[in-house]
């Protein structure tokens, strides 16, 4: 995965400033947000795939 910086590639309407400390804090917060966001959808999805794989096994057992 890569992260993109909108401010580096295009204009931003709010014109917020990003000091070094603020940037570091925001970066850390976003890393947590990224982990929470993907875990939030990844765990139920993994459960669904696991249940599916269990059913597929019947094709080869039957």
């Amino acid at each position: 995965m890569t992260t993109e910086d909108p401010a580096a590639t295009g204009p931003h309407p709010t014109g917020e400033t990003t000091g070094e400390t603020t940037g570091r804090t925001a970066g850390g917060g976003r890393a947590v947000l990224m982990a929470v966001g993907w875990t939030w959808v990844g765990v139920p999805f993994a459960y669904g795939v696991w249940e599916l794989v269990r059913k597929v096994a019947q094709l080869f057992a039957g």
């Binding site: 995965m1 890569t2 992260t3 993109e4 910086d5 909108p6 401010a7 931003h12 309407p13 709010t14 917020e16 990003t18 940037g23 925001a26 970066g27 976003r30 947000l33 990224m34 966001g37 993907w38 939030w40 959808v41 999805f45």
Partner: peptide, 17 residues
């Protein structure tokens, strides 16, 4: 509208939810 530094990889989990 995304603030500066927002990662676009946060949008797919929003869509997936």
């Amino acid at each position: 509208v995304a603030p500066p530094g927002w990662s676009r990889w946060l949008v797919p989990p929003a869509a997936l939810s």
